[in-house]
């Protein structure tokens, strides 16, 4: 269980939050092809290294925010409210 810094609530156990994964960009659903849509739904970079990801402060301020986390070391660089 890692410590995730919520910009509002400070460092929290990750069990207080919900991980929402790498940030993604939602295609325009009116024009996206099914293939583009499924790339958005299912495909992630999943690097062994730095990733920008979203967390939800479900037991605290209820903000979604992003952090940069190194998936190999769990080092965390920054957080901001999205």
């Amino acid at each position: 269980m890692i410590v995730v810094p919520c910009p509002n609530c400070g460092p929290r156990n990750s069990s207080d939050l919900r991980p929402c994964g790498e940030i993604t960009s939602r295609p325009d659903p009116a024009t996206a092809s099914l293939s583009e849509w499924r790339t958005y739904l299912y495909l992630r970079e999943n690097p062994a290294g730095w990733v920008t990801e979203t967390w939800y402060c479900r037991s605290g301020c209820r903000r979604y925010f992003t952090i940069e986390r190194n998936t190999a070391t769990n080092e965390i660089r920054d957080s901001e409210v999205s």
């Binding site: 509002n8 609530c9 400070g10």
Partner: peptide
């Protein structure tokens, strides 16, 4: 450092 980073926390 943790307290300083959380601007709105303690």
């Amino acid at each position: 450092a943790r307290r300083a980073a959380a601007s709105r926390a303690r």
